[in-house]
Nucleic acid binder design. Structure first.
Lengths: 348, 348
DNA sequence: CGGTTCGGCTGAACCGGTTAAGCGATCGGT
DNA sequence: ACCGATCGCTTAACCGGTTCAGCCGAACCG
């Protein structure tokens, strides 16, 4: 009934613990015949290595990596992003028998405390970090802890952590040019909290692209990724004297909320208002009109970041990598400006 | 630079390893003075217990529990349910310094393999299981593995596992009576895959409640929780000769998809069609019209199930518990049947 | 005043692996 | 035929804790 140990195998095979260890780990030091016999006995006995014992032995790995998700829990549940990321990370990890520890926190201090605990208690071999912030204390902190880490985001502010980053500016430009071509001049970007580094990047890219496209009435407002805030922000924008004709949201959730508010206020999408979502997901395809969105391969990012972390844990030098830019998926929520409506609103 | 061990503390305090262990664990065997001195030194040194070492020592806990999520990855990302559950489980676990291992699998066999691996490698102390199926092999499997577990769902089919279950039938009755009172006779339930135990339960409860309310045209169809399938099912239903006037969906995602299809087909909600979603979430409040939904306290369930597992791990006997039933939140997607429309459709 | 009890601590075994060092037998080279 | 290298395995230390048996001294008791 007890779990078999290598000692049990050793006894059954009539060899020593050490020999069994060599055999099971495929290292030299035991003949092929003996190795086969040991492996057979091990599988007969249903042996599996005790992870705690392995981790304890000289510098062993604990075979687990951590991911801390620090976002308001209301928006969290609904954001497809994290589950997709987790799913991607795991498909890569499971190949090497590494587990994923997931922790949800409420703020950065708690997140840092989790890293400290994981490092000092040897709970994980390394971590994946997401949602890089402006002046983010985490890269320095994990490095101070000696905790191997890979960052999804950056590269600015990543310190010397290897990171997997996307250059959002080309996607932003694509969206802006697309909207401009549809005739939109008054385009507003509803972005996430300005503490996020990618929010800042996208904001700058947006203003630059808008300038270049000659959109005088373009600007950004900050929101917080939750549906509630997205709805509130949209309500304010649509109630303004100079109503925007196109809105670009920083995530899909706020975009759906914006769509709802437009319906609520009798603003037709897309004839009176075009909507673009960042982060494509099933959600964007389910609502009516379906949402034009910028899709990224989040699962792929998860896999790649997991691979990078794996190499870091092997001690190999890992360089930061740029991942493919997001792709624009035009759907029903964007279209040419219908002039009659616009003139009705902006005239007099 | 090396992590301090209890041996370091012992040397600094001029006592033995054993004494340090007693002091740090708050057990008798050392004087109060010595204990305080040891604790001070430990905190000076920034000591934290090595989890692998603790787990290895006589029957120690590994301080982690596992959760396997086995759902098609497309629907997974968007389902608020799991992240809320995870969030609830963690708030409870973090109080005792227990970590959560999350694994996403594609099918039940893989899920069982994960439990086997976790048990044989001693990766977790116990697991939380969700989504009980008809003839579910998991309860027997985890018990065979000697893996402590609690189940969210049941109690039928739970074997002798302690479970936290909801009696959905009262909520189903509430929904059916509500729709009947609004004048609906042709109500269809769009449920999840029939392999899920709660799907079967809800289906039976639905038919019974419909009978009792005298709804002749009520029946259930099976779908699979994804938005795509929900949309397809809805399209078929709304294209039928005898079009339903109210749809009850088994999750929020399919309900949103159904709402989209209704819009696409020019069927007005709620005047021509009422929609009810199971599992309330931000999503239900964001779309227009907002969705009437049955909300459960998923975070609370997560906390409670984590508490139950904690007690199981302590070796205490734990009885199954019934959690509060879901509450109906009426919103814009349900309303009285507007007769003119109905007669236009059902006449001749 | 001698014997028992108890508190406070030490020493060592143990958990289940990994790994360096050592050792006898075999083998190739000269 | 002898030497050194290599192979195949054993022995034992080690990782960082927990825990049990035992020991010493002080207090307590009759």
């Amino acid at each position: 009934m007890r779990r078999p140990t290598i000692m049990d195998i050793a006894k059954a095979a009539g060899v020593s613990k050490g020999a069994v260890s060599y055999a099971l780990n495929g290292r030299p030091g035991v003949s092929e015949g003996t190795r086969k016999r040991i492996l057979d006995i091990a599988s007969d006995l249903g042996w599996a290595p005790s992870n705690p014992a392995r981790a304890l032995a000289a510098g062993g790995r604990v075979g687990a990596v951590g991911l801390v998700v620090d976002r308001p829990s209301r928006s969290l549940g609904i954001e497809p992003f994290f589950m997709q990321l987790v799913s991607g990370i795991e498909t890569e990890l499971s190949a090497t028998g590494v587990d994923l520890l997931l922790q949800v926190t409420e703020d950065t201090d708690t997140e840092l405390a989790v890293y400290r605990r994981w490092a000092s208690e040897r709970r994980v071999d390394g971590v994946v970090m997401v949602d890089l912030r402006v002046d983010d204390p985490r890269p320095a902190a994990v490095r101070g802890l000696g905790l191997p880490a890979v960052l999804l985001g950056g590269p600015g502010g990543a310190g010397d952590l290897p990171c997997l980053y996307t250059d959002d500016s080309s996607s932003v430009r694509e969206v802006v040019r697309y909207l401009a071509a549809l005739g939109h001049r008054h385009v507003v970007q509803v972005s996430g909290p300005e503490e996020f580094a990618h929010t800042v990047d996208r904001g700058e890219a947006f203003r630059e692209a808008a300038d270049r496209a000659g959109l005088a009435g373009a600007y950004s407002v900050h929101s917080d990724y939750t549906g509630e805030a997205g709805a509130r922000t949209t309500r304010r924008l649509l109630a303004a004297a100079e109503r925007p004709t196109a809105l670009v949201y920083d995530n899909d959730l706020m975009a759906v909320a914006g769509l709802g508010v437009a319906a609520e206020m009798g603003v037709d999408v897309p004839s009176q208002l075009s909507i673009v979502a960042w982060d494509d997901s099933a959600l964007c395809r389910l609502v009516r009109p379906s949402l034009t969105a910028i899709g990224r391969d989040v699962v792929g990012h998860g896999r790649q970041v997991a691979r990078m972390l794996g190499r870091v844990l092997e001690g190999e030098p890992v360089a930061s990598q740029e991942s493919s830019a997001g792709e624009l998926h035009p759907r029903g929520s964007t279209g040419p400006l219908v002039v009659s409506h616009v003139s009705a609103v902006t005239s007099e």
